[in-house]
């Protein structure tokens, strides 16, 4: 099969390249989805957009990196530790900051998490310099070949772990009593409070779970991606697009949106231009805002 490329119409490219792009886009999309679902969960619960989401991703990547450097623990094995650490960060963020601005005007809410993002990012730059770091030979490395398609093993494992985390999250939210209480709080916090649900604790739990999701994505990323203080910005921007696309507050919407963004990004990179692939994804945000502001699955 022959596919024409937009920038060079006279060059013919094999369908393998397209399939390759689809596979890698899908795997990356699962990571985007897990980052986005944390954002979506927090927004769904208390209508606060966490502008520091990317910085928490960066922190979890550094956690995982330092655990590997200092203790020799592989990113795959350090997931529970990093998740626990970020869950504590989530509690701290809720009790230290978010709790005090829940009733504040939107200006204070947006600026508070934005300020937190700046502080964390600059602190990381100050402590660890803006250098790019990588984890040399992690537990899972190399790539496998299936019918001419190459799949990086760390990416494959990362995709599978993210999918598992997603299923776990979904089961927790829909099957357990705490999960149902979480959903009830998201739907109507006053009604939930009347029913005896400790809404404040639910909010804190939402932050802890949201950041634990980010931690899983971050540890998986650190196995094959560069670790540096600004790494979170791009992932956070993609997560914003994903949350708008999937609908603010929708878990399954985040999954679908994350995967779509992974696909659009990698196919756009191959078919249009690799240097503008993030712009193509940002364009999705405006398409959603113009056509269907509630997202694919979401509530307004």
């Amino acid at each position: 099969m022959c596919v024409k490329l937009l920038p060079q119409p006279d060059i013919c490219m094999s369908s393998d390249v397209i399939i390759q792009a689809i596979v890698s886009g899908l795997l990356m999309g699962l990571i985007y989805a897990l980052v986005a679902v944390g954002l979506s969960l927090i927004f769904g619960l208390m209508e606060i957009v966490n502008f520091a989401h990317g910085e928490f991703l960066m922190l979890s990547m550094f956690f995982s990196f330092w655990l590997w450097v200092l203790v020799g623990l592989d990113p795959l094995l350090s997931i529970p530790l990093v998740a626990a650490a970020l869950a504590i960060c989530g509690f701290a963020t809720h009790y230290g900051i978010v709790r005090h601005i829940l009733k504040a005007p939107m200006l204070a809410q947006i600026c508070a998490t934005f300020g937190l993002a700046i502080a964390i990012r600059s602190l990381a730059q100050f402590l660890w310099t803006p250098d790019f770091r990588t984890i040399q030979d992690p537990l899972v490395a190399g790539r496998i070949e299936i019918g001419g398609i190459f799949i990086g093993q760390p990416q494959l494992v990362a995709g599978l772990v993210c999918l598992t985390a997603f299923i776990g999250l979904w089961l927790f939210v829909s099957r357990t009593e705490t999960g149902l209480a979480l959903q009830a709080t998201a739907q109507d916090r006053e009604a939930a409070a009347v029913m005896g649900i400790p809404t404040d604790r639910m909010f804190a739990l939402g932050w802890a779970i949201g950041l634990a999701c980010v931690a899983v994505a971050g540890s998986m990323l650190s196995a094959f991606y560069f670790v540096f203080p600004d790494v979170g910005i791009n992932f956070a921007l993609l997560a914003f697009v994903a949350v708008a696309l999937g609908g603010f507050g929708s878990i399954m919407g985040s999954l679908a949106a994350g995967i779509s963004i992974g696909l659009v990004e990698s196919l756009g990179g191959v078919l249009i231009s690799p240097s503008y692939k993030s712009l193509i994804v940002f364009g999705l945000y405006f398409a959603v805002v113009l056509i269907r502001p509630t997202g694919l699955f979401g509530r307004y």
């Binding site: 900051i97 005090h100 601005i101 504040a104 005007p105 200006l107 204070a108 809410q109 600026c111 508070a112 934005f114 300020g115 937190l116 993002a117 700046i118 502080a119 964390i120 990012r121 600059s122 602190l123 730059q125 100050f126 310099t129």
Partner: peptide, 23 residues
């Protein structure tokens, strides 16, 4: 040169404090 981000750390914390205590 390395202190290029010190002011940003202070800024970030300042925004946070202002938003919480003196919006």
């Amino acid at each position: 040169g390395t202190g290029g981000t010190v002011d940003l750390i202070i800024y970030g914390i300042l925004i946070l404090l202002i938003c919480i205590y003196q919006p």
